[in-house]
C-alpha cells in the first residue's frame, strides 16, 4: 500500500468537512472489505483515508412508518440476521446470506457495498427492484437518490467526492406483493454468473399482475433495471407463458461480457431462467401474504 494520512472523524459533521477539504484526494473507509484490497493492489492511492467506521448514528435498522431504514454502517451480518429484514424483505436477507462469507459479512457494510458499485454486487438488484433510495450528505446539504439512478458506469456512482452515504431506505411492499432474489454462481457466495431480483404485485382475486420490477446483477457495467421485462407483465394474467416471455426480454436487456463465469450466450440464458424462477417465487410469496 502507498502511504496515506489516516483521519478518523468523530462525527458526521467532521467527516463532511474533511471530505469537502480533501475531495478527490480522499477515500472513505467503512469496513475496508473492498477498499483495502484496492489499496493493496494500488488501484487507488488516496492521500487521505477518512475512516468513518466509528462515526456514531449510522448503524441501525429501523422500521419507520412507510419503510425500512438501514444506516450505511450497518454490517452485512446485521442485515442478514435482522428479524425486521426477515419479516419485511426476506429477499434482502437471502441476498446477504450468499454475499461472500461470514468474516466479510461481519465487517463489511451496506453503504460500502453500494458505494463500491461492483456490478456483480448482491444488494443492488434487490434494492432496485424494491424501489429503494439512498440518502447522502455533504457539507453543502443532503439529497436522496433512487437506487435505480445511483450507478452510472463500471464502479462509478452519482456520489460526489465530498458526499457520504448515510442511509438506505426501502418502502414497504403493498399487500399482495412479494419479492425474490437469486445469484447463480460457480460456488455459493462467489461472484455471480448472473443474478436476478424480482418484485411482483398481484391483483389477488383476478390473478392479474398489477406491476413487476426485475433487476439484474453481474451482466453489465452496472446493475441493470430490466424495464421492458417488468413492463411486459403489467396487466397480464400470471401464466407460465408470460413469465417465460419476461425472462426472454430480460435476457435481451442484459449486457454481459464473456469471462471465466461464462460466455455471453450462457449468461443471457441464465438471466432468462432466473427471471422465470424469481418471478414465480415472488408471485408465490405475494399470494401467501
Amino acid at each position: 500500500m502507498r502511504p496515506f494520512e489516516y483521519l478518523a472523524p468523530k462525527d458526521l459533521d467532521e467527516a463532511c468537512s474533511l471530505l469537502s477539504k480533501h475531495r478527490d484526494e480522499a477515500k472513505i473507509l467503512s469496513g475496508g472489505q473492498s477498499l483495502v484490497a484496492l489499496l493493496r493492489q494500488r488501484l487507488v492511492s488516496p492521500a487521505y483515508v477518512i475512516d468513518i467506521r466509528r462515526v456514531p448514528g449510522l448503524d441501525y435498522i429501523r422500521e419507520d412508518k412507510d419503510g425500512l431504514s438501514i444506516g450505511a454502517l450497518t454490517t452485512h451480518r446485521t442485515v442478514e440476521i435482522s428479524p425486521a429484514v426477515a419479516k419485511r424483505f426476506p429477499m434482502l436477507a437471502e441476498a446477504e446470506h450468499r454475499l461472500a462469507h461470514r468474516q466479510v459479512r461481519n465487517w463489511g457494510t451496506i453503504g460500502g457495498n453500494l458505494s463500491h458499485a461492483d456490478p456483480g454486487g448482491d444488494l443492488a438488484p434487490s434494492l432496485m427492484a424494491l424501489g429503494a433510495e439512498v440518502k447522502v450528505v455533504s457539507a453543502k446539504g443532503k439529497r436522496t437518490i433512487p437506487v435505480v439512478e445511483f450507478f452510472t458506469d463500471y464502479m462509478v456512482t452519482v456520489i460526489e467526492p465530498d458526499e457520504i452515504m448515510v442511509e438506505v431506505s426501502i418502502p414497504y411492499l403493498k399487500a399482495g406483493s412479494g419479492g425474490a432474489y437469486h445469484k447463480e454462481s460457480i460456488r455459493a457466495g462467489d461472484r455471480p454468473i448472473a443474478s436476478v431480483a424480482a418484485v411482483v404485485s398481484l391483483d389477488g382475486k383476478a390473478g392479474i399482475i398489477r406491476s413487476a420490477r426485475i433487476a439484474l446483477g453481474g451482466v453489465g457495467l452496472t446493475p441493470i433495471l430490466a424495464k421492458e421485462a417488468g413492463k411486459s407483465l403489467a396487466g397480464k394474467k400470471a401464466t407460465a407463458a408470460v413469465v417465460l416471455e419476461a425472462g426472454a426480454i430480460a435476457a435481451r436487456e442484459a449486457q454481459p461480457t464473456a469471462d471465466v463465469e461464462g460466455s455471453v450466450e450462457y449468461k443471457r440464458h441464465i438471466v432468462g431462467l432466473l427471471t422465470r424462477d424469481m418471478l414465480n417465487l415472488a408471485m408465490a410469496r405475494a399470494q401467501s401474504k
Binding site: Y6, A8, L29, G32, Q33, V36, A37, R40, V49, D51, R53, R77, A100, H101, R102, Q103, V104, N106, W107
Partner: peptide, 27 residues
Amino acid sequence: CLAGECGTCTVIVDGKAVKSCLMLAPQ
C-alpha cells in the same frame, strides 16, 4: 492470499471472526 479469500488470517475482533488481512490496523 491477502485478498480476503482464503481465511488463514482469521482472528476474532470484539467477538466476531474477521479477516485481519482486510482490516486496517487503526480500525
